[in-house]
């Protein structure tokens, strides 16, 4: 029996699942937007701007979800500053939660800047102060690319660190494999691409541009499927935890509906929106199943062999 079966469940439930999902989308979309910003063409600009907007909204939403999940929400700043020694910084490089709190803050800053730059590019900023900030990082400029590039790199971190965070515990499944971070990176990339496809369609993205995002989504799904297989393989005997409702969710919801079905749709060159919706569903169910399968392990019954 894995030693992880003797630990206690941290009650990370709906807010955290939503945060992992939203953070993954925001990070993946921002990464893809940054790649297209740097290496894409003028026809990709609507997708780039959409990506930065998704990142900015996602970062703000992530911070809000994490804060309301705390037992003492008004003490959220204790993760950033030493409460007894303000304004001394609180930072532990070896603690993913500590690292992540700072990363969300910095990611939020850069993604909001990039989103403002995109709005300035479209001439949508009315407020003088925002127009000044947005103008300084107007989409397409050199500085905007640097800011977007930093946001994109931080986006990959946001998408993946949540999986690393789960691995750096002593809980069943999460701590029994070092592959969760890699899996969440791949899932963040696929869900981020899916969000860009769905929103890009409404925001006047070119067919060419959407085809690029869709082609990337196909590759991200293949990577996700491979990493998921490695992850399951690495769990060994702990896989018995999946002999539950959550195993069914993983198999049917994630593997079949969330990966194989959209892959098939992509390969058949069917309308990209249906595949994107399935990818988003699969991304959510992946977090749901991973969290609840471990949360549901009752240490005492397991310890007593019941």
């Amino acid at each position: 029996m894995s030693d992880t079966f003797f630990s206690g469940a941290p009650h990370w439930t709906w807010f955290i699942i939503l945060y992992f999902f939203v953070g993954g989308i925001a990070g993946g979309a921002c990464f893809l937007a940054a790649v297209l910003d740097w290496f894409g063409g003028p026809e990709d600009r609507p997708v780039v701007r959409t990506g930065y907007n998704v990142a900015a909204v996602g970062a703000i939403l992530s911070g809000a979800l994490l804060t309301i999940d705390l037992g003492q929400p008004l003490r959220f700043w204790h993760m950033l500053f030493q409460s007894a020694n303000f304004p001394a910084i609180m930072f532990k490089g070896w603690s993913p939660i500590s690292f992540g709190a700072w990363a969300i803050l910095v990611f939020g800053f850069f993604s909001v800047l990039s989103a403002l730059g995109g709005m300035a590019e479209e001439g949508r900023l009315q407020n003088p102060a925002l127009r000044a900030v947005g103008g300084a990082v107007r989409g397409g400029s050199g500085l905007a690319k640097v800011v977007g590039g930093v946001a994109g790199l931080l986006g990959v971190f946001i998408a993946g660190y949540t999986g690393v965070l789960l691995s750096v515990t002593n809980r069943p499944i999460w701590a029994d494999s070092p592959w969760l971070g890699a899996l969440f990176v791949a899932s963040g990339a696929s869900t981020g691409a899916a969000a860009l496809i769905l929103l890009g369609l409404r925001r006047g993205a070119s067919e060419q541009s959407l085809a690029r995002v869709s082609a990337f989504d196909t590759k991200a799904l293949v990577v996700e499927l491979l990493v998921l297989a490695i992850f399951i393989g690495s769990l060994g005997s702990v896989n018995r935890v999946w002999l539950s409702f959550w195993g069914l969710v993983l198999l049917v919801g994630v593997v079949w509906l969330g990966i194989l079905a959209p892959l098939r749709l992509h390969l058949q060159r069917r309308p990209v929106a249906s595949a994107a919706k399935l990818v988003l569903l699969g991304g959510f169910l992946l977090r749901l199943a991973t969290i609840f399968a471990s949360e549901g392990v009752d240490r005492y019954r397991v310890a007593a062999g019941m």
Binding site: F6, G8, P10, L70, G71, S83, T169, N170
Partner: peptide, 18 residues
């Protein structure tokens, strides 16, 4: 008075104490 209830310690304890 410093803890904000993030619950990282609960999952980190190998003994299920916290």
């Amino acid at each position: 008075d410093v803890c904000n209830g993030c619950r990282a310690c609960i999952a980190a304890c190998p003994f299920g104490v916290i």
